[in-house]
């Protein structure tokens, strides 16, 4: 079975790069790879960094601070950061608490449902190192090996201002093309 599949993909690859005289064929990923080397990527990143919609997915007590951050008092809207209820509309996932062994498959599924480009911010001591639950039998340790985390915001829980600072740091990373969400 595996061999047959391999053959099929290889033949389709051959047809896609088949040369037609006088016509230059290309693919979407080739265009994207080319754009990454030009100044146009700066413009794209400017748009991306100013519209970072995050997924409302609170997982612990830090989730309450996360919701407070999204509300009117701290007003993330001025940075273009808006809470979204669906992973399909979100750009940023906030891991805002301890990840238990039972919750990890659901979190992975949410992450897979988010369209690329997408980023992760780890919020609070629990998601960074386990927090008070660091030697528990049911929490998953070392989340950064599972998700490409750009920014860690320590605190137990961090203030909403600290979370906003984390978003600003992520914006700086995207502006400098050093984020883990895109391969440059």
């Amino acid at each position: 079975m595996g061999e047959v599949k391999e053959q099929k993909t290889s033949t389709s690859d051959e047809t896609s790069v088949e040369e037609v005289p006088g016509v230059i064929t290309t693919t979407a990923s080739a265009i994207s790879d080319f754009l990454k080397k030009t100044k146009a990527q700066d413009l794209i990143n400017w748009g991306r960094k100013n519209s970072m919609w995050f997924m409302t997915q609170p997982m612990g007590c830090c989730g309450v601070e996360m919701i407070a951050m999204g509300c009117a008092h701290y007003d993330t809207d001025r940075f273009g950061i808006i809470p979204r209820n669906s992973p399909r509309q979100a750009d940023v996932m906030l891991i805002s608490g301890y990840v238990t062994k039972k919750y990890l498959p659901a979190l992975k599924r949410l992450w897979e449902q988010m369209p690329s480009p997408k980023w992760v911010i780890a919020i609070g001591d629990c998601s960074i190192s386990g927090g008070p639950f660091y030697e528990s039998y049911s929490t998953v340790q070392n989340i950064d090996e599972i998700f490409p985390i750009d920014v860690f915001v320590p605190g137990c829980p961090p203030r909403p201002e600290a979370m906003l600072q984390g978003f600003v740091e992520l914006q700086e990373k995207i502006k400098a093309k050093k984020d883990l969400g895109t391969e440059y």
């Binding site: 238990t100 062994k101 039972k102 960074i128 190192s129 386990g130 660091y134 030697e135 528990s136 039998y137 049911s138 929490t139 340790q141 070392n142 950064d144």
Partner: peptide, 28 residues
Amino acid sequence: ILPEDMLGEWPLRKDYKGFPNKTARNLV
């Protein structure tokens, strides 16, 4: 509350081996 694949480990028994969990890498 526990996931199905942890069934049979019985975490709160005194001879449970998985506690304390020492896999956390970036502890201060």
